[in-house]
């Protein structure tokens, strides 16, 4: 069961260049931390993929196991876990995030 969720998550993470596991969606984030990550990404990207963990409890639990990270939101770039809200905010402020995203074009 848990393995099944892990492979579903793995597929998602590898299918989407920029992927955020969050509470709510881009238009209606359901948590301040998710809202902040969306605000940052919206300022740089017209399109990216989000997964609303509130819609699927198995994903909500499974993603924490997948990354060994206990909180949501979680940002993945090219299949690689980047961090949660604090780290993404730091990466944005330092310009590191812009650099990582622009190297994808």
């Amino acid at each position: 069961m848990s393995e099944d969720v892990q492979s579903r998550i793995d597929a998602l993470v590898n299918q989407h260049t920029v992927l955020v596991f969050m509470k709510g969606d881009r238009d209606f984030p359901q948590c301040g931390f998710s809202a902040q990550v969306v605000r940052i990404l919206d300022s740089m990207l017209p399109e990216y993929m989000t997964v609303d963990v509130l819609q699927d409890q198995t994903i909500r639990d499974g993603i924490k196991e997948y990354s060994s990270w206990p909180t949501i939101p979680q940002l993945y770039l090219d299949g690689e876990f980047q961090g949660g809200c604090d780290i993404i905010t730091e990466m944005y402020q330092s310009g590191e995030l812009q650099q990582k995203l622009s190297s994808k074009d």
Partner: peptide, 23 residues
């Protein structure tokens, strides 16, 4: 930064998700 936060999360253990909803 990620390794640092992992140290903090590790120290807090099961409190994440129970006593602590957000940090």
């Amino acid at each position: 930064p990620m390794a640092r936060q992992r140290l903090v999360y590790g120290a807090l253990g099961d409190w994440m998700g129970s006593e602590i909803h957000a940090l």
